[in-house]
C-alpha cells in the first residue's frame, strides 16, 4: 500500500513538473496567489510597513486584482523590483503583473512587448525650490543648479524644457531620491526636479515643509499604470477591467462602506451590472459574478485608494488634479460596464 502511494506521488510530481500553461489566469489560479511586481519602496505608492505588509497606491491595485480573482485581497505576493529589472521580471514570467509607477511610453508598450492596461495616475515632472529663492515660475530659473536623478526620463525632459525656454542650467546628477533630498537640503542645488508626486512626498518629509514651494509648471507627461505581458489578451482584459471597475465605482458613488447595501438593493442598472447582481460580466471575464464587488471591497474605490495613500489627508498631500473623475474636470474616465 505505502509503496503504491510512493510511486503514485512520484508520478504526480513528475506530471506536475512537466505541466505549464500559457494562460496567465489559469496559472494564477493554480498557484493560489497573484504575484505582483512592485517598487522596492516609493512613498505613498508602495512600501512595506513594520510588519512587512506592503501598503500604498500601486499595492492597493494589486490587492484589488487579487480580490477580483480569488475574493481575497491577501492572495497576492509582492516582489520588490528595481527600475532595471522590472521589465525583464515581467517578460520572464516571474511576475503576473507589474504595478510599479511605470510611465506608459510607446517604446515600453511596443518594443518591450508589454501591454499597459490603463492609467492609474497622471503624473508630470515638476520643480521644487526653497521659498527664499523668491522664484514663482520655472521660467525664472536661468542659471540655476538642478538636482536630477541620472538615467531617467526626467533628465531628458529637463534639458528639453530649458532649451525650449532658452535658459541655462547646471545639472547636479544624483542616484536616488533619498540622496537628492540630502543634497537639496544641504544646498548643493537650487532646484530639485522629479515627478510631481515624488516632489510632494519629499517636501512632506522636510523638517519645515513651508520653506519650500513646488512651482506650478509641469513639464512632461508621465501617465503611470500597471502593465502585463504581450500575448495574453484575456489576462490583460481582467487587469484592465479591474482598474476600470475601481474608477467606475467612484464615478457611480460605490464605496467600500455602502457596497453591501448597494449590491442588495440598487435601482441603478449600471451599478447592478458592475456588482454582478445583474448580467454576466464576471462570467465573460472568466471570474465570479461578484468579482468587481470584491475588487472594490479590497481597498475601496479609486477615490478611496487615492485618499488613503497619497491624498490630501496623508503627509504626501496630493490634490486630485488631473486624477479627478472626468465629471469633476479630471482625466479619470472608464469605459462603460455594459
Amino acid at each position: 500500500m505505502t509503496k503504491k502511494v510512493f510511486w503514485g506521488a512520484l508520478a504526480v510530481a513528475g506530471v506536475a513538473a512537466g505541466f505549464a500553461s500559457a494562460d496567465t489566469l489559469d496559472d494564477v489560479k493554480a498557484r493560489g496567489e497573484l504575484i505582483c511586481g512592485t517598487s522596492t519602496g516609493l512613498a505613498g505608492f508602495s512600501a512595506p510597513d513594520a510588519n512587512g505588509r506592503y501598503e500604498g497606491f500601486d499595492v492597493a491595485y494589486c490587492r484589488a486584482l487579487a480580490a477580483a480573482i480569488f475574493g481575497d485581497p491577501d492572495a497576492v505576493e509582492f516582489k520588490p523590483l528595481t527600475t532595471t529589472n522590472r521589465f525583464s521580471a515581467l517578460s520572464a514570467g516571474e511576475i503576473d503583473i507589474l504595478s510599479r509607477n511605470t510611465t506608459w511610453t510607446l517604446t515600453r508598450d511596443v518594443d518591450l512587448k508589454t501591454t499597459f492596461v490603463g492609467v492609474n495616475y497622471y503624473d508630470g515632472q515638476g520643480f521644487m525650490v526653497p521659498k527664499e529663492l523668491g522664484v514663482s515660475s520655472a521660467r525664472e530659473l536661468d542659471g540655476a543648479t538642478v538636482c536630477i536623478q541620472k538615467g531617467t526620463t526626467t533628465e531628458l525632459n529637463l534639458s528639453d524644457f530649458f532649451r525650449k525656454n532658452n535658459i541655462s542650467y547646471e545639472p547636479v546628477p544624483i542616484e536616488t531620491n533619498a540622496e537628492a533630498q540630502q543634497q537639496y537640503l544641504a544646498g548643493a542645488c537650487d532646484v530639485y526636479t522629479t515627478d510631481a508626486s515624488g516632489l510632494a512626498a519629499t517636501r512632506a518629509s522636510f523638517e519645515n515643509p513651508g520653506d519650500h514651494i513646488i512651482l506650478p509648471e509641469i513639464v512632461s507627461k508621465e501617465p503611470l499604470g500597471p502593465l502585463v505581458r504581450h500575448g495574453d489578451d484575456h489576462w490583460a482584459d481582467i487587469a484592465r477591467w479591474t482598474l476600470n471597475a475601481l474608477i467606475t465605482a467612484e464615478e457611480l458613488g460605490v464605496t467600500s462602506a455602502n457596497i453591501e447595501e448597494l449590491s442588495a438593493s440598487t435601482e441603478n442598472p449600471e451599478i447592478a451590472r458592475l456588482l454582478g447582481t445583474e448580467g454576466n460580466l464576471g462570467e465573460m471575464l472568466g471570474l465570479s459574478a461578484d468579482w468587481a464587488k470584491n475588487a472594490i471591497m479590497a481597498e475601496g474605490n479609486y477615490g478611496e485608494i487615492f485618499e488613503k495613500n497619497i491624498g490630501e489627508s496623508t503627509p504626501i498631500g496630493l490634490a486630485r488634479g488631473l486624477n479627478a473623475q472626468w465629471t469633476e474636470g479630471g482625466l479619470m474616465y472608464s469605459p462603460p460596464f455594459r
Binding site: T40, G41, A43, A47, P80, A178, Q181, T202, A204
Partner: peptide, 26 residues
C-alpha cells in the same frame, strides 16, 4: 544585491524611507 531588488539592509533602508512615517530619515 539591493540593486537587483533583494531587500538587504541597504535595500530595506530605501523601503523604510518610503514609509510615510519615516520618509526623510537618512
Amino acid at each position: 544585491v539591493s540593486i537587483i531588488g533583494i531587500l538587504d539592509p541597504i535595500g530595506l533602508s530605501n523601503a523604510i524611507r518610503a514609509d510615510n512615517a519615516w520618509n526623510g530619515i537618512y
